[in-house]
């Protein structure tokens, strides 16, 4: 299986590569549009700040490539947020794949949310073999509002989207590569998606 992790200078992608390796597959890092288009599976990672990440995507033309991909694509953390309509962080438009906005947590809460929280109302083959209320690891200050495309929810002061899907595009707010055995199972389910 040809797995490509989109490399646009956004943070810790080594961990995702290692997690895929633990599942018995190899992934390559690439920013090359042609290589990305030819992959069987594409992972779109990201940590950091939304508007500067969008600028990087635009400067490489990847903002035009990603929404046209036909194979399963998994956005992780900021990757998922950038696939939405609009991100409050840095007041930037996203890629517009998911029809939801990304907004900041209430300042009465500790922000960023750091740690393990539950996912529930699971609605996708991404969660095959995963129990309702499973724990996953999250680190984020902005969240995707609930919408019709939500396939998992989490509660942190508000109920929000912790996973989302539209056609071949998937997004998870949590870090499957850091979410212990459950995370690896979710990653494995994605790699089996068609």
């Amino acid at each position: 299986m040809n797995i490509v992790i989109i490399d646009y200078g956004a943070g810790n992608i080594q961990s995702i590569k290692f997690a895929i390796k633990r599942l018995g597959y190899d992934a390559i890092l690439s920013s090359n549009a042609e290589e990305i288009r030819l992959a069987d599976k594409v992972i779109f990672p990201g940590v950091g700040e939304a508007s500067s990440a969008m600028k990087m995507l635009k400067s490489t033309g990847l903002d035009k490539v990603i929404p046209t991909l036909k194979q399963p694509v998994l956005g992780i953390c900021l990757g998922m947020q950038l696939m939405c309509t609009y991100c409050e962080e840095g007041d930037t438009d996203g890629l517009g794949i998911f029809h939801a906005n990304v907004v900041k947590f209430d300042n009465k809460l500790k922000v960023p949310q750091i740690g393990w929280n539950r996912i529930y109302d699971l609605k996708s083959e991404l969660f095959t073999g995963i129990s309702e209320q499973e724990f996953v690891y999250l680190v984020h200050s902005f969240y995707v509002k609930e919408c019709e495309e939500t396939i998992a929810s989490t509660e942190y002061g508000v109920e929000y989207t912790s996973a989302i899907q539209k056609d071949n595009f998937y997004g998870v707010q949590f870090h499957p590569e850091k979410s212990s055995d459950a995370g690896e199972k979710i990653l494995e389910n994605f790699l089996k998606a068609t």
Binding site: Q14, S15, F18, A19, K21, R22, Y137, V139, H175, E177, K178, S179, S180, D181, G183, E184
Partner: peptide, 11 residues
């Protein structure tokens, strides 16, 4: 760090 990241699936 690299060896830990290869093996460990928590942060």
């Amino acid at each position: 760090v690299r060896r830990v990241a290869e093996k460990v699936n928590i942060p």
